[in-house]
């Protein structure tokens, strides 16, 4: 059907809460937009997320966080990516993340943050634009 590069995205739900509605909706929307989505599901630790991202050679990691623990989790994931020598993997997030935390998260290296109710097309466009990879060569 198609040859060439495909965008690969890891979608994970770190932390303890189990509200995976958003993560699943996004995963499915990305698949329908032609991306390969590696879905690792609930209760993922930063180490598990980063190791999976390395093994799967993904272009981006999407983390869905609704527990309020976003600062702790993003900090750890980004530090681990650096430590493991893959700092270029794009990290983006979704969930209940207050705006006042955005600048801090972005300066730490988080690419973009999507609030609940965001159109999935917004996320798709962002990823296509940022990853600049041709879906259908």
């Amino acid at each position: 059907m198609t040859q060439g590069k495909r965008i690969r995205i890891l979608i994970a739900k770190p932390g303890l809460d189990g509200h995976d509605r958003g993560a699943k909706v996004v995963a499915r929307a990305l698949r329908n937009a032609g991306m390969e989505v590696i879905y690792v599901g609930l209760h993922q630790t930063p180490l598990q997320i980063v190791n999976a991202a390395i093994d799967e050679d993904v272009d981006a990691i999407g983390l869905s966080i609704l527990s309020g623990a976003h600062k702790t989790i993003f900090t750890k994931v980004i530090a681990l990516l650096k430590k493991r020598g893959v700092p270029k993997v794009l990290v983006f997030g979704g969930g209940t993340i207050p705006k006042k935390d955005w600048n801090g998260l972005k300066s730490m290296g988080v690419g973009e943050i999507f609030t609940p109710g965001s159109d999935t097309s917004k996320i798709i466009n962002y990823l296509n634009r940022t990853l600049k990879r041709d879906k259908n060569v």
Binding site: G15, L16, D17, T45, L66, S67, G68, A69
Partner: peptide, 10 residues
């Protein structure tokens, strides 16, 4: 240790 940052959450 798995609960760091989530005690008293939500």
């Amino acid at each position: 240790p798995l609960c760091e940052g989530e005690v008293g959450s939500a």
